[in-house]
């Protein structure tokens, strides 16, 4: 990435808009075409709602995007610079998956919180970055304030409700500042009150210039301020008007 590209996409002194173009995403499982040659353009100022039926490949798409599942084919262009071709598909994927994992953070439908306290969970992604303890504490507290759970930092993770777990998972991803957060049906199994708290949290992420892709069955997903709507149907992606 050149300095010029950085400057073009400068939003604040700290954050840039990350532009990704993903082409020819192909994913076949058990001889069934799950993702059929998808082409998607994503920017970190996008707030994308992705809908689709059960089994349409929404989770697969998010897992490919976050480098957790190896696709059968794909290419990526980041900040208008195409990825270099490797000698083989395996080598290409090996280099690209780390790139994807660096920029896209996947959140499970039912998040897994590690054993330990809420603080330990939110600090997890910072532990292997060479940061001072005070700095980690500051960032964790900031993240917990974003999801309005700073009063629960010392609570054991297994003692949280479903909604609180989801918000801790959001804080845990937010704190590492990925370009994109990929939320896989975050409102499934949530009551009305938890939903509203989570809506507020997710809407706030937009202000931090973190791109969001959120999957849902419901095309009218509450009070979320989307600016794009993608629909996945039979392995193909369609852009719907908002």
């Amino acid at each position: 990435m050149t300095k010029k590209v950085h400057d073009d996409n400068l939003i604040t002194s700290k954050q840039y808009i990350h532009n990704f173009i993903l082409n020819n995403i192909l994913f076949v499982r058990n001889k069934k075409l799950i993702l059929n040659d998808l082409n998607v353009e994503l920017s970190s100022n996008h707030f994308v709602l992705m809908t689709g039926q059960n089994g349409s490949g929404k989770s697969t798409f998010l897992k490919v995007l976050s480098g957790l599942l190896k696709p059968d084919n794909f290419s990526i262009t980041y900040q208008q610079k195409a990825s270099e071709a490797a000698q083989s598909k395996s080598k290409f994927w090996f280099s690209q998956k780390f790139f994807l994992r660096k920029h896209f953070c996947y959140l499970h439908q039912t998040p897994y919180l590690f054993s330990g306290t809420v603080y330990d969970n939110v600090a997890y992604g910072l532990m292997h970055k060479k940061l001072a303890k005070d700095e980690i504490a500051h960032k964790v507290n900031e993240a917990l304030k974003v999801v309005a759970l700073d009063h629960l930092s010392k609570r054991n993770s297994y003692a949280l409700s479903g909604g609180e777990k989801q918000r801790v998972a959001i804080a845990r991803s937010w704190v590492i500042k990925p370009a994109f957060m990929l939320l896989d049906e975050p409102f499934a199994n949530m009551d009305k009150h938890s939903r509203h708290s989570t809506y507020d949290t997710i809407n706030q992420l937009k202000e931090d210039n973190i791109g969001i892709v959120l999957t849902s069955h419901d095309p009218h997903c509450g009070e979320l301020a989307f600016n794009r709507h993608l629909h996945l149907y039979q392995g193909k992606m369609n852009e719907n008007p908002i």
Binding site: R101, C105, F114
Partner: peptide
């Protein structure tokens, strides 16, 4: 749970971690 491994790597943890 497979989510442990997936969560760890999606949060940027190195393989050993």
């Amino acid at each position: 749970d497979r989510r442990v491994w997936e969560t760890a790597i999606t949060l940027g943890a190195p393989t050993f971690y």
